[in-house]
């Protein structure tokens, strides 16, 4: 620590200034501004002169708003299904790719592609594949003998699972690569010890690999939960929240409220609820990391 004398020069401020000015103007002020708006009935057509302070009215409306609850329910369902499925598939892929295959890098690059692809392009292809009458998926299912294949994106029951499938598909490569990095940190001696104890490959996986990857898993769970509460692109393009409210999720409902119905005060208050939820999840991560670091 270079804590010499407490004398401050002017240069550090020049270093920090470009970033800090932008930070204040484009992040800090909007965040505070957003909190302010969330207690008003602001919309862009009324302007500020006709806007009134409504106190907690937006939050009361929210708790009575059936669509908000449906969006929350769908979002929780999306999170609860996509994350475990993605993690289980990725951990298996990572273990197999780790020293047990040829062409590891080529495979890794291929499965990573959905992660860097534009959400719009992705949604467009999947819409074509999901087309109920002519799409490849249903034609394939019919050829396999399924007489009444799902209507996918246009079907109340299947629209959300379809969105989930795309979400899982997008995240697999990223999660696998992170798990592969995590595997590098597991000492070979643990496996040798397990082999001496006569453990099978499956037992090694369950009793050595999975527990040793718990920090990686925790990191992935936290970041994926945060990301899944902001899922927007696939929903907005593929289903627009429909049919009915079958695929309405938080970020989409916030967008629709603010920019289609112009209820900006209401949108801001819902966004703040989202922020508080994300903040909570992050705090949980910090606490866990602190606790875990002190164990070493």
């Amino acid at each position: 620590m270079e804590r010499r004398k407490k004398k401050y020069n002017w240069e550090p401020y020049v270093f920090i200034a470009p970033n800090f000015i932008g930070f204040i103007v484009f992040i800090l002020l909007p965040v505070l501004f957003s909190l302010g708006i969330s207690f008003t009935d602001f919309d862009i057509f009324k302007g500020f002169s006709h806007t009134s302070f409504v106190g907690l009215e937006n939050f009361k409306t929210m708790f009575a708003d059936e669509w908000f609850w449906v969006a929350l329910k769908n979002n929780i369902l999306y999170t609860a299904v996509t994350i475990p499925v993605t993690l289980v598939i990725s951990i298996v892929l990572a273990v197999v790719l780790n020293n047990k295959t040829y062409c590891t890098n080529a495979i890794r690059v291929m499965i990573f592609i959905p992660y860097i692809a534009s959400i719009v392009a992705i949604s467009v292809v999947w819409m074509m594949l999901f087309n109920p009458s002519q799409g490849l998926i249903n034609q394939f299912l019919i050829a396999l003998g399924v007489s009444n294949p799902p209507g996918w994106l246009g079907d109340m029951q299947w629209a959300l699972p379809a969105i989930m499938m795309v979400g899982i598909w997008m995240g697999l490569g990223y999660n696998t690569v992170i798990y592969m990095a995590g595997l590098q940190g597991i000492s070979e001696s643990l496996y040798e010890a397990a082999q001496i104890d006569g453990a099978s490959k499956w037992q090694e996986f369950i009793y050595v690999t999975v527990p040793m990857l718990r920090n990686t898993t925790f990191f992935l769970v936290v970041t994926s939960v945060i990301a899944s509460f902001q899922v927007f692109g696939t929903v907005n393009i593929m289903t627009n929240g429909g049919p009915g409210n079958a695929t309405t999720v938080l970020a989409h409902y916030i967008y629709v409220s603010g920019f289609r119905y112009y209820k900006m005060g209401y949108a801001a208050s819902m966004a703040w609820v989202l922020l508080i939820a994300i903040f909570g999840v992050t705090l949980l991560q910090w606490k866990y990391q602190k606790k875990h670091e002190s164990n070493f």
């Binding site: 407490k6 020069n9 484009f26 992040i27 902001q230 920019f259």
Partner: peptide, 30 residues
């Protein structure tokens, strides 16, 4: 470099890292 409130300021940056775009979009629009 050393400057006043450096660590507090950095803490503020860290906190804002988790602000989702949904919070910023209405105020930025205005």
């Amino acid at each position: 470099l050393n400057f006043k409130y450096r660590d507090q300021l950095f803490m503020l940056y860290l906190v804002t890292m988790m602000v989702p775009f949904q919070v910023l979009m209405v105020p930025q629009f205005i």
